[in-house]
């Protein structure tokens, strides 16, 4: 199995205000982007993040070869059980996901 990190050149996450996290998945070329597009499933991402799939917003940005996910923070920034003030570590949960070798091109 291939890790998502192997077919992307950067995956970052960051707060989008105190109540949201946003994850940007950057692909280097069209082939990798198509592979990521088909291989990265919303259900798999939501499961890795520990959130409900209905809370996950997805944007496929073809011009930028970027897949972007945004979701309400499972724990509000800076409250007592928050572990990551800037939300920068959520990207790692996605970077280490396996992408299926045979993926179907889709632009859902």
């Amino acid at each position: 199995m291939t890790k998502l990190t192997a077919i992307t050149h950067k995956i970052r996450s960051k707060n989008a205000g105190p109540f949201w996290i946003t994850i940007d998945i950057f692909c280097s070329d069209d082939a990798d982007y198509r592979r990521a597009l088909g291989g990265v499933k919303n259900e798999q991402v939501a499961h890795a993040l520990g959130i409900s799939v209905t809370d996950l917003k997805r944007y496929n940005l073809t011009n930028l070869r970027v897949i972007k996910f945004s979701f309400p923070r499972p724990i509000v920034q800076g409250t007592r059980f928050d572990r990551d003030m800037h939300g920068a570590s959520f990207a790692n949960l996605i970077a280490e996901l396996d992408v299926a070798p045979q993926t179907v091109l889709s632009d859902e």
């Binding site: 960051k14 707060n15 989008a16 205000g17 949201w20 946003t22 940007d24 950057f26 917003k57 944007y59 940005l61 011009n63 930028l64 970027v66 972007k68 945004s70």
Partner: peptide, 16 residues
């Protein structure tokens, strides 16, 4: 064009 358009992603839940 890439660095400029990609900046709409930054710290923004909705890139559009």
């Amino acid at each position: 064009p890439y660095t400029v358009s990609a900046h709409m992603l930054y710290e923004n839940a909705n890139p559009l």
